[in-house]
Design a protein around this nucleic acid. Structure first.
Lengths: 131, 131
DNA sequence: ATGCATTCAATGCACAAGCATTTAATGCGT
DNA sequence: ACGCATTAAATGCTTGTGCATTGAATGCAT
């Protein structure tokens, strides 16, 4: 792969990412009052509920998959809590840690927003040769 | 393409983008005191010099290719000017417009940073099946 | 048990981004 | 020539982000 190929690959990746994020941001915000990152976190929580019995997550576990710094994630969760979509609770075995759990309102909001996200992603990614 | 395929495509795109930007940001900042967007703008200017005879750019022309809002780009150029890497000058034919030109210092800084950018991009993008 | 390095999450702070607005210049219609 | 919608770029304001630090809890070594 030549440097020029690497560069054009990077520019295409970057452009696609920007276009998708911009669309997602607008659609999720307008229709469901959710930012992209907020939705992403709710999404991880919903997925995780199926796996872990109690549906509880350490903040740290959420960091993987959401590409945010620890501090940004901390504040994002605080916002979600203020909006009533998650609860934060101390965990007994390691009292430094914090468990994050979805509320019913959070589950509802996520399920409302999910089709919007899927639609936007499909519009950008389905049936293209870009992989 | 199923929804699940779309979703995993999106997550991979997103993860790759985040990883590359994060690396670029760190390397360009540590080694050359340049942000990713700052470098990107310098890069467009350098490329453009080869094309347009006078090497002048309307701010608007730079917007294409750099995925930033108009206001963000305006302030970014102000930062570059303060750092001595570009000059802003009125253009005679349309006095609303602003021409942006590279300074020697800007050209030098860009040429120093270019190998760093190429190295990071190659590390992430060369010789992978992800296209 | 005590001290010390380590880890988790929250917070102070500085900065960059977007939206909406503003200021200035242009051009078009009458 | 005059008014009016439009465009270019800058700016006020709010918000989200990262870095560095803090505070609390843990665990490990002595």
């Amino acid at each position: 792969m030549t440097d020029n190929e690497v560069l054009s690959t990077w520019r295409e990746l970057s452009a696609r990412h920007a276009a998708i994020v911009s669309d997602l941001e607008r659609e999720l915000q307008d229709r469901h009052e959710l930012g992209v990152s907020e939705f992403e976190v709710l999404d991880r929580l919903v997925e995780g509920v199926c796996l872990s019995a109690d549906g509880k997550f350490r903040v740290q576990e959420l960091a993987a998959g959401v590409h945010l710094s620890q501090s940004a994630l901390s504040r994002l969760i605080a916002r979600l809590e203020k909006a009533g979509f998650v609860l934060r609770s101390m965990c007994a075995d390691d009292r430094r840690g914090v468990f994050v759990t979805l509320t019913d309102a959070g589950r509802v909001r996520h399920s409302e927003a999910l089709p919007t996200q899927r639609r936007v992603l499909r519009a950008h990614l389905a049936a293209t040769p870009h992989g």
